[in-house]
Design a protein around this nucleic acid. Sequence first.
DNA 1: TATTGTTATACTCTATAACTATA
DNA 2: TATAGTTATAGAGTATAACAATA
Lengths: 166, 166
Amino acid sequence: MLAGMTAMAPTRTEPDLSFLLDRTSHVLRTRMAAALAEIGLTARMHCVLVHALEEERTQIQLAEIGDMDKTTMVVTVDALEEAGLAERRPSSTDRRARIIAVTEEGARVAARSQQIVDQVHEEALAALPANERAVFLRAMNRLVTGHLAEPVEHAQPVRRARQRGN
Amino acid sequence: MLAGMTAMAPTRTEPDLSFLLDRTSHVLRTRMAAALAEIGLTARMHCVLVHALEEERTQIQLAEIGDMDKTTMVVTVDALEEAGLAERRPSSTDRRARIIAVTEEGARVAARSQQIVDQVHEEALAALPANERAVFLRAMNRLVTGHLAEPVEHAQPVRRARQRGN
DNA sequence: TATTGTTATACTCTATAACTATA
DNA sequence: TATAGTTATAGAGTATAACAATA
């Protein structure tokens, strides 16, 4: 399941950054999914809900913010509509586009889901002494904006282009 | 692609730990894959190679160390054998089990791949000032052994049990 | 009966392709 | 021509099931 790329803890003393990041992100993601599932949301639904609430946004705009494909956005919005948390409305300025409008119920759920997200994060960070915590978060932000800002161009793309003639 | 669970950077000031961990682990994983691909290895192949070198280990033991399914281990070992980096040998004590023996070429490649892994980690950590670095790594270790040590039991399992009668 | 390793396959996820309607 | 959204589906990854050999 986890890559376990260099889970060589027993034998190596050098810090295995891959293991540390993979493990923590995976476990946090699992906990977040479980916590949000209790109110019927996925992480993606929460993400769309929150950003659709901020201002009028189209599916494409929300897809970019959440780093999803537009086809993934379709199923996410489908789920939100089915749950009565959001609706598709035609844009008044572009008849191709749909504005994602959050319902009143959707706004209530979003407020609750944001609490849940904050709490899950808080519980995770509780493992750190207060003074370490600030340094840790600053460091994470440095990594995110530093050398780990952008994925390397795929030498061999994740997904092969489809063969012509198929 | 990335979950983008709470990529709400523009509007929220609270640290979004999910975003930070997802993003950094994903980018690091991508970079690692690209770097190892240059010598024909995947992260799993590297992981198996390194741990098989340490002592005589069976596929099951290596699967546990690398947190892989035993069926995933089969294809990983297949790849190592095909590349001439490792061989399956019958265990002398259990005729069901296979010891994964690393070839001389495999040992050379493992030494090189370990250099690559260390270098990729080093490049990532270079974004941090020296004093921050130690605190950061200590904090990551605290998270990994703290509340983020174990994934929560899946409320709804990742994969549904197969229907009976199919 | 339980376990190691194998094969075959089913399931999930997500991106690609192709399409409609607009711009 | 290009873009927003949709549908259908292909590809990759990985786990489940069933099996053979052995414990």
